[in-house]
């Protein structure tokens, strides 16, 4: 994939979910930078990142070469999406104010056009819905459902972080991942050397769900998984 130009990657990602997910992962620093540059104190950074990832996925779907460089296009779509969500929130609080001072007047018309073209809520929700249906059938193969996950999901943030680290460890190790996918069971004995056995036993379903969701088949749902900012990104 590295030999392809960005435009080629984007056109491939339009039809291939794995390419789209890979592109999302590759451009995560860029997405986080966009979030950091248009971050409003009233907003949650995690919410902004989810919005930005969804906007990036949309910009891949709606991009054509005539619109110039993809990065510039994606940055505009992400920025407009974040502004839209701030506008919505402020209007909900009855404290709407104009962003005319924040946006260059010359670019406004062009950017609004791109934003409208790129952001289609119904289409986005339809894609999410299709992915959830696929996830449901995948979960059924593993013998659990969202209702089970609801009961097994760690309540504490610290426990969720441990579960995420476990999922990441499995995902990074090709052998562990292949074993997990083949046997459809978490290799608890091998992971017990690194993580507390009790956590592995208790959050087994949740960890497996994280592995399934972050494998690359569900780029839209992937936007709803936690992606933490590093300290440098927080300060930028």
């Amino acid at each position: 994939m590295n030999l392809l130009t960005l435009t080629e990657k984007v056109s491939l990602a339009k039809s291939d979910k794995h390419f789209l997910n890979a592109l999302l992962l590759d451009y995560m620093p860029f997405i986080k930078k966009c979030v950091a540059s248009s971050f409003f104190k009233s907003q949650s950074r995690a919410d902004n990142l989810t919005d930005a990832m969804l906007a990036f996925a949309h910009s891949v779907q709606t991009y054509n070469q005539e619109q110039g460089a993809f990065i510039q296009y994606a940055a505009t779509v992400i920025r407009n999406r974040l502004f839209d969500s701030v506008r919505k929130e402020l209007s909900a609080r009855k404290r709407f104010f104009s962003f005319s001072t924040l946006i260059n007047e010359k670019d406004t018309t062009w950017e609004t056009e791109i934003s409208l073209q790129a952001y289609n809520k119904a289409e986005e929700e339809e894609k999410l819905s299709l992915e959830i249906e696929e996830i449901n059938s995948e979960f059924a193969k593993w013998g659990f459902s969202w209702a089970v996950l609801l009961k097994k999901c760690p309540k504490q943030e610290r426990s969720r972080r441990i579960a995420m680290h476990v999922a990441e460890t499995v995902r990074q190790d090709a052998d562990l991942l292949a074993d997990t996918l083949r046997t459809r069971q978490l290799p608890v004995s091998r992971l017990a050397a690194l993580y507390p056995k009790k956590a592995l036993e208790n959050y087994r379903h949740y960890i497996i769900a994280l592995i399934i969701l972050s494998q690359g088949d569900y780029p839209y749902i992937y936007s709803f998984l936690p992606h933490h900012f590093t300290i440098e990104e927080e300060n930028s």
Binding site: A46, W146, C153, F224
Partner: peptide, 25 residues
């Protein structure tokens, strides 16, 4: 906190939130 509805139910639906929580609302 943003989330996506993964299972619709009555009176509660299951939501996957972007902090990793799976909750019924």
């Amino acid at each position: 906190m943003k989330g996506v509805i993964v299972q619709v139910g009555d009176p509660k639906s299951i939501v996957l939130f972007n902090n990793g929580k799976i909750q019924a609302i």
